[in-house]
Amino acid sequence: MDLLRLRRSFVAYITDAMGNELYRVRRPFWWITSSIYVEIDGKEVGVVHRRWHLWRRIYDLYLGNEQFAVVENPGLWNWTFTLKDINGEVLAEIDRDWRGFGFEIQELEVARPLTLSERAVTLALAISLDNDYFSRHGGWGIPFIDVGE
């Protein structure tokens, strides 16, 4: 059944150029809302929780127990996911419509650069978004992440 296939668990291994594991992204099976975890050496360092909403796509991003960003996508045909801090300032943007570096160079005004750990959690969100929305709608592949620097 296709519906269950989209909710299946998976683990993605993020490696350096030599094949050494930097961290892993793990998403367990889910029914209504999903969570995706970032682990370094088997220890959870961050998580993305999807909040349930009938049509909007809302994600909360955490490092440990501290929330550092939220995504509140209006849904429907909007394929841009903007990460904002608790003050509403833009931190990064994930977009399905990326066509390549020559086409998409643009300035994104961000409040501050993301830390390495925040980037790892943001990549976990991008993997989750790709699995949930982009890949099943025509095989778009990993979406573009613009962090401003």
Rank of each mutant, 00 (worst) to 15 (best):
L108S: 03
R119K: 14
R112Q: 06
L108H: 02
V110G: 02
R119Y: 07
S117Q: 11
L114C: 07
E107T: 14
V121Q: 00
Q106P: 00
L116V: 14
G102L: 12
G102H: 04
F101R: 11
G100Y: 06
A111S: 15
E107Q: 13
R99L: 15
A111P: 04
G100Q: 09
T122Q: 08
A111E: 09
V110L: 00
V121H: 09
L114Y: 02
V110C: 01
T115D: 04
I105H: 08
P113K: 04
I105E: 11
S117I: 03
S117G: 02
E107K: 13
A111Q: 00
G102E: 01
I127W: 00
E107I: 15
E104D: 15
A111H: 13
A124W: 02
Q106F: 10
E109A: 11
V110F: 01
R112F: 03
L125Y: 07
G102M: 06
P113W: 02
F103K: 12
F101D: 08
Q106K: 14
F103A: 12
A120D: 12
R99H: 14
P113S: 05
E104W: 08
I105N: 05
E118D: 09
A124L: 01
Q106G: 11
R112C: 02
V121E: 01
E104H: 10
L123E: 06
G100M: 04
L114E: 07
L123S: 05
V110S: 01
A120R: 13
F101M: 05
T115Y: 07
E109F: 12
E104Q: 10
L114A: 03
L123Y: 07
L116C: 08
L125W: 10
A126S: 13
L123N: 09
L123F: 12
Q106V: 10
L116R: 09
